[in-house]
């Protein structure tokens, strides 16, 4: 499903001292099949944006009123479409939408509630199915979801979700979202609070899901390395607007602007610019593997400077 957002505005607690303009004119198109990244400094509106995608935040009913300077941009029209769902239309079937857009919130393990893993994963499944599912159907679907996130179903199914480890809980929570086989999977900071190995495993899991389960995967992240290693394209949010939408390799050519927005650039981009200062120009797509290769190629071509890059790589 293709996601098209044009001129989204959103303000929390309008007309009160707590008023916060979270989105100010966000326009963004995410194609079907992408592994899309959304990065931005804290408070830049990433979570607010992704919550629009499955209708948890509805577009304001009268679009004009929510706009600060309505005269100036009365010509712009807010559009938000997810596949065939038109979210600006109040008659849209939001249940069907939520079924096709799975949303994994930050720290999803804190939404587990059921007595057993099986019950918890089946929660969404039961909610979304129109007719009553048989136990076998539920079992099959839950088994598939639990196994695809890399857990052993027979061992897990009767355990309490609260006696699992943090990483396992997170996997169970993700299984609880993908069990309905959404076409789009949105994850808000999926790797937050995990150790490096855990992060890597979660990212591998997301790639697997992207290949086998969900056509489109959208992740929100602070971590530039995560974005550069994994995403096909990334959008940079800053103060409620989208600054860039580029593939990571092009994005990190704007290293200075990113730093000014309070974002870090990936280690590889830093190394490239450090090497550039020393007169070594390396062009790579900023993934660690490609960087290494290019450096080695460079080293082979310029044997004299071997010592320099040896240290850095």
């Amino acid at each position: 499903m293709r996601i098209v957002a044009e001129h989204l505005f959103y303000t929390y607690n309008p007309k009160s001292p707590f008023e916060t303009a979270a989105l100010r004119d966000v326009s963004l198109t995410i194609e079907e099949g992408e592994f899309f990244g959304i990065i931005g400094h804290t408070g830049s509106g990433k979570s607010t944006f992704v919550q629009h995608l499955n209708g948890l935040i509805r577009l304001p009913s009268s679009l004009k009123r929510s706009r600060p300077n309505r005269k100036k941009d009365s010509s712009v029209k807010t559009v938000l479409k997810v596949g065939d769902f038109d979210l600006a239309d109040k008659k849209t079937d939001f249940r069907a939408l939520r079924k096709s857009v799975g949303m994994v919130f930050q720290y999803p393990e804190y939404q587990l509630f059921a007595e057993t893993v099986r019950e918890d994963v089946a929660f969404g499944l039961k909610n979304f199915s129109s007719e009553k599912l048989s136990e076998e159907q539920i079992d099959a679907a839950v088994r598939a979801a639990v196994e695809v996130v890399g857990l052993d179903y027979d061992e897990m199914k009767d355990k309490s979700p609260f006696e699992l480890s943090g990483g396992q809980k997170r996997r169970v929570a993700i299984a609880g979202v993908i069990v309905t086989r959404p076409e789009v999977l949105v994850l808000d900071e999926p790797a937050a609070g995990l150790d490096p190995l855990g992060k890597q495993e979660i990212m591998q899991l997301l790639h697997k899901l992207h290949r086998e389960w969900c056509r489109t995967v959208i992740i929100v992240s602070h971590d530039m390395d995560e974005i550069s290693e994994n995403c096909t394209r990334a959008a940079v949010f800053s103060e409620g607007t989208v600054r860039y939408v580029l593939p990571p390799r092009e994005l990190f050519c704007h290293a200075q602007e990113l730093t000014a927005m309070g974002l870090d650039v990936p280690l590889t981009a830093k190394l490239v610019s450090l090497l550039h200062e020393r007169g070594i120009d390396i062009e790579c797509d900023f993934t660690a593997a490609d960087f290494c290769e290019k450096v080695l190629a460079y080293a082979a071509a310029h044997p004299k400077k071997e010592r320099d890059e040896g240290g850095e790589a």
Binding site: L56, R98, F105, P108, Q111, F123, N127, G176
Partner: peptide
Amino acid sequence: SRIKNAQMARGAD
């Protein structure tokens, strides 16, 4: 409200 949103995303009504 966060938990509510998360459960609504899983189809809770």
